[in-house]
Design a protein around this nucleic acid. Structure first.
Lengths: 204, 204
DNA sequence: TGTACATCAGTGAACGCGCGTTCACTGATGTAC
DNA sequence: TGTACATCAGTGAACGCGCGTTCACTGATGTAC
């Protein structure tokens, strides 16, 4: 089934190792200071050599972001959807924060390199829950509404609730990854309380 | 009582106009791409000329961040502390988000240029509410607790609640300033609901 | 298995660029008498 | 009010730096017969 030639496999491995080095550099010095020449230096290539594997610096960055997104989604998708929906929401949020905690570099990479979503109403924004974190969250909120757990008010419905939950969790994650990076604190406990509290609020 | 000489006043005005230009450039191209030479170009100075007013590029950036922080705090501090504490908390949060909305550049500037707080427990972190946004928030939470509005649980007390509220509001603000920048949506209404919901949750 | 050739992975040097900072300088502004 | 001098604001050219990308090249690897 594997129709790749030895050459292709070797090439793919090299590609990955270059990305690995690039990621290390992002972790160490931040995305802003990432340079193709430094990647080459670390990976024992000449700068020109990298053009065998990537079209240029930008392509390397794109590959990193893409990789980070995949890992992120995989991390969230581990939460079993069979959980009671309220528990599912809590665990989903905790996984979101945990990812940021375990991979602050990956997380900040995605965040720094975000591209603003197109000009549409949040209502119309349905990114096909398949490979999108926002989709996971929105589906869960929908289930909670259907189950009668979250009473819908005229100006605060599915989208508003989803957006609020996302904000809370994102805020928790990002403060820990930035301002509070060095703080000693039992964050998981506070985080869990915070999410529960919010869900309690949504349930009235 | 203004003892400054005309020269000093002129100098101060020039300083401010340079900062103004720098801010415009940050807005246009982001902090990463800010360059001293470009500031000079815009402000009709030679690059060397700026060294009359600032010790170097870094000093300009510091001044920008400092300025942004002052404006931010002033914006939050307008909320009258005489409001019922729950209303105060809502309005404080809304002001936080509003600032980010009105001055996304200032806001992201502060955020991008954050410096991680020192390695202490959140408990010990008391930045003297005087000129610090975190202080305003924590004082309000303290009042809510004192008034018996927020029941304190053993592992979720003043600090945890403050941190959670900060996260929620920060998350709302930052998502609007980044991913959702282009979205059409009635954010203020959702934001208000979100904050109310969370406060309801804290009040049980 | 050996040979001739094509493809491939990788190099080294050079390109032009914009950057932050320095320094000797100059003309304008202010000050003292 | 006029003059001599000191201070100041600002310049222009140069410094060395690291960057992304290009290009002609070469030795190694693979392929066909």
């Amino acid at each position: 089934m594997d129709e790749s030639t030895p050459r292709q496999r070797r090439s793919e491995r090299t590609r990955q190792s270059i990305l690995q080095v690039a990621l290390e550099l992002v972790i160490e010095k931040g995305l802003n200071k990432l340079s193709l020449r430094e990647i080459a230096r670390r990976a024992d290539y000449s700068p020109a050599g990298l053009y065998e594997y990537f079209g240029g610096k930008n392509e390397i960055v794109e590959a990193l972001v893409c990789d980070a997104s995949d890992r992120f989604f995989a991390h969230l998708n581990r939460i079993p959807k069979t959980l009671p929906v309220e528990d599912y929401l809590v665990e989903l949020g905790m996984a979101y924060i945990e990812f940021a905690h375990l991979n602050p570099d990956h997380f900040m990479l995605m965040f720094t390199h975000y591209q603003a979503l197109p000009v549409v109403s949040l209502d119309d924004f349905v990114p096909e829950g398949d490979s999108n974190a926002y989709g996971l969250l929105m589906d869960a909120v929908q289930r909670a509404i259907d189950a009668g757990l979250f009473p819908v008010r005229p100006d605060y419905g599915k989208v508003g609730m989803t957006y609020s939950l996302w904000s809370l969790v994102h805020g928790l994650a990002i403060l820990q990854a930035t301002y509070l990076r060095q703080f000693k604190w039992d964050f998981p406990t506070s985080d869990r309380h915070a999410i529960r509290t919010f869900i309690d609020g949504l349930s009235q």
